[in-house]
């Protein structure tokens, strides 16, 4: 996370620094598990925990690690954390663990985690690395939530959420009448369509923002020139 980005607001970071729609990282799991809000929140929390803890561990061990073995060291840390999270989820949230399946283990190869360890945590202090992990994890979760909201609503017509510990339904609202759902959104085709639309929206917001910033900078430069000419 650059200083420039740190100055931006929370929601601005969710958009401009978004690992999924902005940097195209962690797309495999995003496309695969975003069929329901439960999956999205479960996966999001798992990735946040792994990201924060791996960033902290990498930040602590980086000064002791020679360059030649830094990748194996980071992978051992990340794989351990993912296995721990998997064990805890299987024990305490079995329904969620079963729904997420192999994608819990595949957090190990989620580009966001190794990417942040390499790009940020190994060069920064513990507190800053933990904050970076939290913000990246929240951005990833935000992406999962956006995808799953659209896919669950259009694919099933229902928005629902269950207790991950017991599997008991907390709420379930039908927003699209039965027979008007679009089942393709439950499949991978729907996942790609939703991803493309959201990624295009984020790109459009970024372009618009950059264009405004350029226009402002041009106006400021013109004003300076005028002032200089007057002087």
């Amino acid at each position: 996370m650059s200083e420039n980005n740190e100055k931006k607001g929370f929601f601005s970071e969710m958009i401009f620094n978004n690992p999924v729609f902005g940097l195209y990282l962690g797309i495999c799991s995003t496309l695969a598990i975003t069929t329901s809000l439960n999956n999205a929140i479960g996966m999001g929390v798992a990735v946040i925990v792994v990201l924060v803890l791996s960033n902290i561990a990498v930040s602590l061990i980086a000064p002791l690690t020679p360059d030649e073995i830094h990748i194996p060291v980071y992978i051992v840390i990340i794989a351990t954390l993912v296995t721990l999270v998997g064990m805890l989820m299987q024990a305490y949230t079995p329904e969620l663990f079963s729904a997420l399946g192999a994608f819990i283990d595949l957090i190990v190869v989620n580009c966001i985690i190794l990417g942040r360890a390499e790009a940020y945590a190994c060069k920064n202090g513990v507190a800053a690395s933990a904050r970076d992990g939290l913000m990246m994890g929240l951005s990833y979760t935000f992406s999962l939530l956006a995808m799953s909201l659209i896919r669950q609503l259009l694919g099933t017509g229902i928005l629902s959420f269950s207790n991950p510990m017991s599997g008991n339904e907390i709420f379930s609202i039908r927003l699209i009448p039965q027979g008007f759902e679009i089942p393709v959104f439950k499949t991978q085709t729907g996942a790609f369509l939703t991803f493309a639309v959201l990624a295009a929206a984020v790109a459009a917001i970024k372009l618009n923002s950059e264009a405004k910033e350029k226009a402002k900078a041009l106006e400021a430069a013109k004003a300076k020139k005028k002032e200089a000419a007057k002087a």
Partner: peptide
Amino acid sequence: KVLLLGVLCAFCGLLL
């Protein structure tokens, strides 16, 4: 390097 990786793996193994 061998010691660092060995100690790290042993610690992770104990934790797991």
